[in-house]
């Protein structure tokens, strides 16, 4: 890693140096027989342009090579460097050390996930939940010969929900995820909305079966921490509330419409979407 990561400590940049800061990092190495996580303090240079991830990389490269954590792009796109920084779920590449000065900065693994080692969590639960909401375009009709065109308004309908980078900060922030391991969770439901609101998709009612359940949207009590934590402004809480209204409307329709029309309401084409052309 030292070979690929530029050695920023070699850059003296004296006017940027503002002393040092302590990083209080959670360590856990069950393969060494540790039963409980512990914390370890590291003194690192405090630089204006260093994020928490740069601090961790400095520790890994220069102080303690045994520290384990996930990271890749360093620019808020890959979604792999999510951790708790001073107790809040953050992308560590976007959390700047100077904002936590004078420190110490606590760095812990994401909450609501089992820890494999140090700051690395086991994300299997999330990976198993994602495909349950069928996050792909469902359309029985054969694809159009050319491209499937959309108006800017049709793209705007779902674009916000398509910005998710699967960083799982919302799962770490959500108290319901912590209470009920089966809850589908914010990102998966927002992703379902991303496809529900896509004018090319006809899978609304397929997804309703999975989402209008105790483990789906009705498990959410609109705490809103997912939206606060989201680094890409997806607003999962808003997506879930919006979905609750459409799911409740569907239930109401199925309840009040006569049986002959009910069949059409539950099996027929999906309700018209915003900006749908006739």
């Amino acid at each position: 890693m030292a070979d690929t990561y530029p050695d920023v400590t070699a850059d003296t940049g004296t006017d940027l140096d503002t002393g040092t800061i302590t990083m209080r990092v959670t360590r856990y190495r069950p393969e060494d027989g540790e039963l409980e996580p512990t914390t370890q303090d590291y003194q690192i240079p405090l630089r204006k342009d260093w994020a928490v991830l740069d601090g961790l990389n400095h520790i890994k490269d220069h102080i303690d090579a045994t520290l384990s954590y996930r990271w890749s792009c360093r620019m808020g796109i890959c979604g792999s460097c999510g951790m708790l920084v001073n107790g809040e779920p953050k992308l560590t590449c976007e959390a700047f050390l100077t904002d936590y000065a004078p420190g110490p900065v606590r760095v812990e693994p994401l909450a609501n996930f089992p820890v494999i080692r140090d700051l690395v969590v086991e994300i299997g639960s999330f990976m198993r939940k994602l495909p349950q909401v069928k996050p792909w375009i469902i359309d029985e009709a054969p694809p159009p010969a050319g491209e499937h065109r959309q108006t800017p308004a049709q793209v705007a309908e779902y674009q916000q929900y398509s910005m998710c980078i699967n960083c799982m900060l919302c799962y770490s922030a959500c108290p319901i995820v912590g209470l009920d391991e089966h809850f589908l969770g914010p990102a998966a439901i927002a992703l379902a909305q991303r496809y529900n609101l896509d004018s090319r998709d006809q899978g609304v009612l397929d997804r309703l079966e999975v989402l209008s359940t105790d483990e789906g949207i009705w498990g959410c009590t609109f705490v809103g921490e997912c939206t606060t934590a989201c680094p890409k402004h997806v607003d999962p809480a808003g997506a879930i509330q919006r979905y609750k209204l459409s799911a409740a409307t569907e239930s109401l329709k199925a309840f009040v419409l006569p049986k002959s029309r009910r069949a059409r309401a539950t099996n027929g084409p999906a309700p018209a979407k915003e900006g749908d052309t006739p």
Binding site: E209, V210, S212, T213, D214, W218, K244, A248, L252, F255
Partner: peptide, 16 residues
């Protein structure tokens, strides 16, 4: 997954 029958209506009342 248990499909919720009453919850959508209770939520509509809550929301309203």
């Amino acid at each position: 997954m248990a499909k919720q029958r009453a919850e959508p209506f209770l939520w509509l009342l809550f929301s309203a």
